[in-house]
Design a binder for these strands. Structure first.
Length: 226
DNA sequence: GCGACAG
DNA sequence: ATCTTGTCGC
């Protein structure tokens, strides 16, 4: 959708090739706010069925004000790539793109499970999806891939910077009292500040923001029979 | 070389 | 991610 060389959408022939694609793709990442009014947010998560070797992407479109689902989509595909830290995109992006192509409503913003720019090469899965689709995106991760941070205060809303090689790459955010922090980083077309704002607007009584929490449930329990 | 390591 | 039971804490 966005104007990037078609060769960057290729299936990597090896892990080394995948890394080359990431170095090239990172040039297109933008972390300045570039979106209009945000009414609908998409939460996306991927689950696996080890027996059939299939991946299942669950996508939910939520109204940002009511935090209620407006539409859901489930897409499945044979799992295409092994899990290699730093190369998660090549395992999950294809089936996620498939789900985004099937959804009827067009989201204004998408939350992806995993890192945005908080990645060794600045291209976590949220950035990867943002570049491929043109959608503004945010990485919502439950743990760190790279970088260091000071433990944020124990109260919901308290945060600290995630730093890597001297630069801020994300935010450690306490999403509710006394739980492990979430790691928020810009995926594409959004700033650190706005990324955290949108996640906070979607927090209720759980650790995960609603779009992510619902997508997570769907990826695990919906269509249990792939 | 050693340890770390999203989902 | 997924495999798995009970259990501690708000």
């Amino acid at each position: 959708m966005d104007h990037i060389p078609a060769s960057l959408t290729r299936t990597p022939e090896s892990a080394q090739d995948a890394v080359l694609i990431q170095w090239e793709m990172r040039k297109y990442v933008r972390i300045n706010d570039d979106f209009g009014t945000v009414k609908m947010i998409a939460g996306i998560d991927v689950g696996y069925d080890l027996q059939s070797n299939t991946s299942k992407a669950a996508l939910v479109i939520m109204d940002i004000d009511r935090l209620m689902p407006l539409e859901t989509v489930i897409a499945t595909d044979p799992t295409p790539f092994p899990y290699i830290p730093g190369l998660l995109s090549f395992r999950e992006a294809p089936v996620i793109i498939k789900a985004l192509e099937q959804v009827k409503k067009k989201p204004d913003m998408i939350f992806i499970d995993g890192q945005g720019i908080a990645h060794p090469r600045g291209l976590g899965i949220a950035s990867h999806i943002g570049i491929l689709t043109g959608y503004p995106s945010i990485g919502v991760a439950k743990s760190v891939l790279c970088g260091n941070y000071k433990e944020p205060g124990e109260k919901k809303g308290q945060s600290s910077h995630l730093i890597y090689k001297g630069n801020k790459i994300g935010t450690a955010l306490r999403s509710r009292d006394n739980v492990k922090p979430l790691f928020i980083s810009p995926g594409h077309k959004i700033s650190h500040e706005s990324a955290v704002d949108f996640v906070q607007k979607c927090l209720t009584r759980y650790r995960l923001p609603e779009p992510t929490r619902i997508a997570d449930k769907l990826s695990k329990f919906a269509d249990k029979n792939i």
